[in-house]
Nucleic acid binder design. Structure first.
Lengths: 208, 208
DNA sequence: CGTATAATTGAATTACGTCAAAGTCCGTGG
DNA sequence: CCACGGACTTTGACGTAATTCAATTATACG
């Protein structure tokens, strides 16, 4: 059930809320769906560390070998292309792309450290919306000012280090002020520059 | 006449609160002193992203090239050995060590994301003390249960995403409860297991 | 000494969390 | 078609951790 390969073009399918481990096979490039990697404190508090969107390699850290068993949790159903070890054994271009993926993750983490350490609730959530929209856009999954949005408010809370209750109230504020439109699984950013201000972006900052 | 017993061993010296840029030359391995890399929000809020202690390569990200100009700020006077490009052009062992340094930074960042997102003030500060002590110990700079500690309370605040006032009050609480001894530039951890509990460590968690 | 930087303290405020209950949405099966 | 259940969102009242502002006291340093 968990992994299904088709002969013509190999495709791996995963269900929502399924854990994918390193042992399970090769790397994947996500074609459709969202996934994440998270960490827990002993008492159960959860922090989502990395978010994987369509186009992302999942998880690039898997090839570095000696690390702890990086688990990936699917947030939605996932359609992905298995990459096997092409990226390791492949040619220079493939290897370069792989290292770039690793360094993008590292840079995103650095920005997120600033966000968690120094941004307020509203700023964090605005930042998250902008990052997700921009990543979806680059992957070719944005339509005008909007894109699919597959996170529950509890998941937003686990990304931003807040509670789901506070996320709810904060989002409602942003809605009434016209900063975002968020209905269920669809996000629209009417005025990106406004939202960038809300998120305390630098004027020339480029999301990634 | 005089005999020279030591051949010149190249050493780079930096003053406290000096900014070291990529252009300035090669990589360095810190022999003595502390440094950091930080990020700012437009209104001046500061978050320290990476902390460099003796033994650390500073900054390993510099060799990955295309990145933004990673600045390093010295927190104290620094004595460092220039590494030039040996790590890139060098043999396999050298290259491996370099990649390991990069992946250690990445893993530390991931843990710090959990800390900033989900740990309370007291837990964050306890975590920081344990991480610093352990890194100093591994680098051979711990003496019994203690090590040098070169951060002001404002710098602790910029690492933990808190205010210096709150850091002060929290540390005082830890002091009166006997969880740490911290006088000026010296840190002592009388009972590491106790402090690990305070920091909400997992039972088997290994600092790095 | 004198000046700067860092640590400490107090009082008032605020942002965010907690707890608990209702309301909404959506798929599933009868 | 409706009833049901489960996951998600929304709301209110209240509690608390952390911030802010503004002094004051220590500590280092030339």
């Amino acid at each position: 059930m968990s992994v299904q390969f088709e002969t013509a073009r190999p495709v791996a399918l995963f269900k929502p809320h399924q854990i994918i481990r390193k042992e399970q096979g090769a790397l994947f490039r996500i074609q459709e769906g969202w996934a994440c990697h998270y960490a827990l404190l002993p008492d159960g508090r959860r922090q989502i560390i990395t978010l994987y969107l369509p186009g992302d390699i999942c998880d690039p850290r898997w090839v570095t070998g000696s690390d702890e068993p990086e688990e990936v949790l699917t947030l939605t159903a996932i359609k992905a292309s298995p990459l096997s070890n092409r990226l390791i054994d492949g040619d220079d271009a493939e290897r370069r792309e792989f290292w770039r993926a690793l360094s993008v993750i590292e840079r995103r983490q650095r920005r997120w450290l600033l966000t968690l350490g120094r941004r307020s609730a509203g700023e964090r959530i605005a930042y998250l919306f902008l990052e997700i929209y921009e990543r979806m856009r680059r992957a070719g999954f944005a339509y005008g000012q909007q894109c699919a949005f597959n996170l529950t408010q509890t998941e937003i809370a686990d990304l931003t280090g807040l509670t789901s209750v506070h996320v709810n109230r904060t989002i409602q504020g942003m809605r009434t002020r016209g900063q975002i439109e968020l209905d269920g699984r669809w996000l629209r950013i009417p005025d990106p520059d406004l939202l960038r201000q809300v998120a305390a972006f630098h004027a020339d900052e480029v999301v990634e």
